[in-house]
């Protein structure tokens, strides 16, 4: 009886590899630096949102500070390679480790906070990190940032072109997807989902929910740091601007758009939001002459609001409903933002 449907869910074993191969061939077929760079950005954001998705969609904890972790990764690479001449690979490892350590430090007290206290706390953390990037000028170059970051290189391999970087970033995305796919159906994944469903029941089933939430928080910070490090190597320049509160909101938006607690949600959310951003950057100046692309944030905000009101479970579940019309998606109603109703339960 041991072999169960949930563990052999991918019925068409060749479908996904085929999709991956097709996707990976994309930059070779469409010879456009613009498209390649957009795909790289989607990949970087997907890495962050995958981690944030574990934290929000599975462990049920929100973070409005992941722009800060993203930035810590980026600045770790920038500072270590330009000021201390670290080898790029070591600097990238540091970019993963530093946010992880910071998350481990602040996570324990922070995750005791609930609902909006947690939202406020993580938001405060993100603002603090962002302010430090601006203010610690000797180390971070202040508002003008740090330029001249070398290309990522290991041995003879130098990631000096968009195409190479595309393969690097998406290889990382696939690795992370693979890992998360294993994770969510494992003992740890069940425990994480259990926290989202009922924290009381999870605790009485012997799950140390505090510790597990902390692990999810650290995991999400590591991935944000990894993305930040890769970003720094890709752009070869960092400044405080892309790591502020708006970035944090954008990550939450991506996680929510894709559908919290769904496997492809982060990928879908990052893709949709980046494409929408690109579209708006193109469309807004056409509609409002002289306007820059920065107005995209108006739409991001509105989309976030509308989604939270009318479709808190995100768009990720839409595909599933369409493909299996007979079956109602289990627990779709309970998806969306976990954390119960307003206020605490009495016990």
């Amino acid at each position: 009886m041991g072999r169960n449907k949930i563990f052999t869910k991918i019925k068409k074993p060749f479908l996904w590899p085929a999709c991956v191969v097709l996707f990976m061939a994309l930059p070779l077929v469409v010879d456009s630096n613009y498209i390649t760079s957009v795909l790289i950005v989607i990949g970087l954001y997907t890495i962050i949102v995958q981690g944030l998705g574990i934290l929000m969609g599975y462990a049920g904890q929100v973070s409005f500070g992941h722009g800060g972790f993203f930035g810590l990764g980026g600045y770790a690479v920038a500072v270590l390679t330009t000021r201390y001449d670290w080898p790029p690979v070591l600097a990238l490892l540091a970019a993963i480790a530093l946010p992880g350590l910071v998350a481990a430090g602040i996570g324990r007290p922070a995750l005791k906070l609930r609902e909006f206290y947690l939202a406020l706390g993580t938001m405060g953390f993100g603002i603090l990190i962002h302010t430090m990037f601006n203010e610690a000028g000797k180390l971070t170059g202040g508002p003008s940032g740090i330029a001249g970051i070398p290309y990522l290189s290991t041995g003879g391999l130098v990631f000096d072109s968009d195409i190479k970087f595309f393969y690097l970033v998406w290889a990382v995305v696939l690795l992370v997807l693979f890992g998360i796919n294993n994770l969510i159906r494992s003992r740890v994944g069940r425990a994480l989902r259990a926290i989202r469903e009922s924290e009381h029941a999870a605790e009485t089933a012997g799950i140390d929910t505090g510790k597990l939430k902390l692990k999810a928080f650290i995991f999400s910070a590591l991935l944000a740091g990894l993305a930040g490090g890769l970003y720094a190597f890709y752009v070869t320049f960092v400044s405080p601007a892309p790591f502020g509160f708006n970035a944090s909101v954008q990550f939450v938006l991506m996680a929510v758009v894709g559908g919290l607690g769904t496997f492809f949600g982060p990928l879908l959310g990052a893709t949709l939001v980046v494409l929408l951003g690109e579209f708006l950057r193109w469309a807004i100046p056409l509609v409002i002459p002289g306007a820059g692309g920065e107005y995209e944030i108006v739409f991001f905000g509105l989309i976030l609001v509308l989604l939270m009101i009318y479709r808190p479970e995100g768009l990720g579940t839409l595909g599933k409903i369409l493909t299996s019309p007979g079956k109602k998606k289990p627990g779709a109603a309970e998806a969306g933002i976990p954390g119960g109703g307003r206020g605490y339960e009495v016990n």
């Binding site: 909006f116 939202a119 905000g301 307003r342």
Partner: peptide
């Protein structure tokens, strides 16, 4: 909706 959903809404606003 939950308090968290509402806070995300106000952030969006």
């Amino acid at each position: 909706a939950s308090g968290l959903t509402l806070i995300i809404i106000t952030i969006g606003l």
